[in-house]
Amino acid sequence: MSLQPAPPSRVFMELVPWANLGRENNPIPTLETQPVGSRSHAAKAHPGAREVHVSGAAEVSASPDRAQVIVRVSSTKEAAAEAKKSVSRRLDYITQSLQQQGLQTENVTVTKDIRRVENAYHMEAEVCITFTEFGKMQNICNFLVEKLDSSVVISPPEFYHTQGSIENLRRQACLVAVENAWRKAQEVCDLVGQTLGKPLLIKEEETKELEGQFDDQQIPEPWRERV
């Protein structure tokens, strides 16, 4: 009696990394996107998951985009009408000069005050001017001093940042810090021969905002960000 030939055998083999030995029947699930401030549970449950932790910092600065100047005129007369007339004449000259220089009315605010001082009337007016062009501000202030001399008092300019420029500065610092962290992570992965994937967590750790003056000159406002 002849034996029937045995059917050809088939062998299936799979190469499993050393870190995954003993977990062939329990593969590591794919990491899912987690909200900012939380850790991936898959990464915690499986120490074999490869991660790289880096930090990045950035510092950006911007010069002020606004300046405010106050022009004061005053007069003291025995009659209230004379005090008003003296102030109004110079006040009209100032406002007309500002209009000729192209300043918008919304950037000019005028306040007036009259009060009794002993046996006379004292009237004072203030013109608050907001400038976006600092060269024009200097030219106008010099012009008013030359034309009105000591009858006008001009305050030193007060420089500041608008809220919009500050928000843009904060956003720029954050983006640059994240970019610096990403570059650092990319260099680490290249060094060890790995491929950098999508970020699992981005956390803002520290922010600092500084502003001030030095030698009567406004210095740019730096914004420091660390992620």
Rank of each mutant, 00 (worst) to 15 (best):
S2V: 02
P5G: 00
P8V: 05
M13T: 03
E14H: 06
E14K: 09
L15C: 04
L15R: 06
P17T: 00
N26I: 02
P27Y: 00
I28T: 11
V36W: 01
S38T: 13
A42F: 07
A45T: 05
A45V: 03
H46I: 04
R50E: 12
E51Y: 12
V52Q: 00
A57D: 13
V60C: 03
V60E: 05
S61P: 00
S75I: 06
A81E: 13
E82G: 08
E82F: 13
A83D: 09
A83M: 10
R89N: 07
D92A: 03
I94R: 01
T95L: 07
Q96V: 08
Q96I: 06
Q101G: 05
L103N: 01
N107T: 04
V108D: 02
V110Y: 02
T111K: 10
K112I: 03
I114G: 03
R116E: 15
E118A: 12
E118F: 04
N119G: 10
A125T: 02
A125V: 02
E126F: 08
E126Y: 06
T130L: 11
F131V: 03
F131P: 03
T132G: 14
T132A: 12
V152T: 09
V153D: 14
V153T: 14
I154Y: 06
P156N: 12
Q163S: 09
S165C: 05
S165N: 10
S165A: 12
I166H: 04
L169C: 05
A173M: 06
C174I: 14
C174N: 13
V178T: 10
W182Y: 15
W182G: 12
Q186V: 12
V188R: 13
V192F: 07
G193A: 07
Q194S: 14
G197D: 11
P199G: 08
L201R: 15
E206M: 15
T207L: 08
T207V: 15
Q213M: 15
F214N: 12
D216K: 14
D216R: 13
P220S: 07
P222A: 09
W223D: 08
W223S: 13
W223I: 13
R226M: 12
